[in-house]
Design a protein around this nucleic acid. Structure first.
Lengths: 209, 209
DNA sequence: TGTACATCAGTGAACGCGCGTTCACTGATGTAC
DNA sequence: TGTACATCAGTGAACGCGCGTTCACTGATGTAC
């Protein structure tokens, strides 16, 4: 057994991290395998010893966020999943919708950067995306007050608001409105996490169909 | 002057409509000019008599939505911009977050389908995107109650919630959670449009920086 | 301790393909006479 | 009314380039003896 046991595993991690950053910056289609491998200090040919195809790399890079860069981020922001207190949900919302997070293109949450690419990709990629949504919703849900179904609903709407607000702010040209959207989303999110108990139900039958 | 006056203009519209649909389905990078032109009943070479490059086509196709397919959609949903009544904001929210809209990939709002592609494109494309955001926020703003700055804020957060909820619902694998997100976003949006007066302000100084 | 060997992570040239863009040409149409 | 002509929207072959993927090879390293 040449090379130490975890030699290949560490190389794989390097490729994944390089890929995650490149995909964040340029999107799936505009990142080449050459680019990723070069960024990881390797050459093209070695790629297929680690991944079966480019799309698998994408799915794995997205999945790596949760326990990699995402965990660092949660730690830095003082987000402890098990805390189970309202203050934690607020901290999440504040950090997620912060200007720092908006500007940190390399470290940004994949839910923001990969949405459209994922919608057009295969099941494996979409499953990775789904797991991140579940993880984010879970973090919110476990740190809200109220009855179960209401907590779940509010957690999911917070997720939609955080991700949606950041996607818009990132997509709009750097201007007044991008900031306005981010801040408006934050205000609305603050209002959702601080409101306990019931919210109005939609009255449109098409929606509950 | 061979060909009637508006002959070329009509051809251009055909190309734009074909492009809008193809971009909705497959995204900017995966749509070829061949594909668009064939869909419009033309051949490759004629393209550059109408547009200077592929990205210009993208910007124009997005811009064409507002007065084209988007106008049809608003009409079908009974959304009259000038109505200035709360019920109109509700109708917008209901229609935007409806299952019909989610499933109508070809007619879907570009804010949902083009977000990530736009974030990586040039100024012209981003300006088109910005105009659509402004238009949507304007529609909300003019149909809400409350003081001006509060209306604006709620209009922008409704926009973020509608777009974000739909992007997530579209990106997640077809499953329970995709529906949950869409419905949760709708519940939260309903709560925002029906709430008049002040909402809590964020308490984090970083956000107002 | 030192040497030969087997393993396999990584290399880099090559393949095949498709795409954006260009350009010389065609042919349908409105107009001048 | 009919014909020759000018215009220019649209054609389709060709160019140049880059990318995902393959594959025969290299060479660094741990192990057996």
């Amino acid at each position: 057994m040449p090379y130490s046991k975890d030699h290949k595993a560490r190389t794989r991690e390097r490729i994944l991290e390089a890929a995650r950053i490149q995909f964040n910056r340029h999107g799936f289609d505009r990142v080449t395998i050459d680019q990723v491998m070069a960024e990881a200090g390797l050459t093209r040919g070695g790629f297929y010893a680690h991944f079966s195809c480019k799309e698998e790399l994408f799915a794995e890079a997205m999945a790596s966020f949760l326990h990699g860069r995402g965990a660092q981020w949660r730690e830095a922001e003082g987000i402890e999943p098990q805390a189970r207190q309202l203050i934690m949900a607020k901290r999440m919302v504040d950090a997620y919708l912060s200007r720092q997070h908006l500007e940190d293109l390399d470290g940004q949450c994949p839910l923001i950067a990969y949405a459209t690419d994922t919608a057009r990709a295969g099941d494996r990629v979409r499953d990775s995306y789904c797991q991140l949504v579940e993880a984010m919703a879970w973090l919110f849900e476990n740190n809200l007050d109220g009855d179960e179904s209401d907590k779940r609903r509010r957690a999911l709407s917070l997720t939609a608001l955080c991700v949606g607000g950041m996607i818009l702010a990132r997509t709009l040209p750097e201007s007044k409105i991008a900031e306005e959207v981010r801040l408006a989303a934050h205000t609305a999110a603050t209002s959702i996490w601080s409101r306990n108990g019931k919210t109005e139900m939609p009255g449109n039958e098409r929606l509950s169909a």
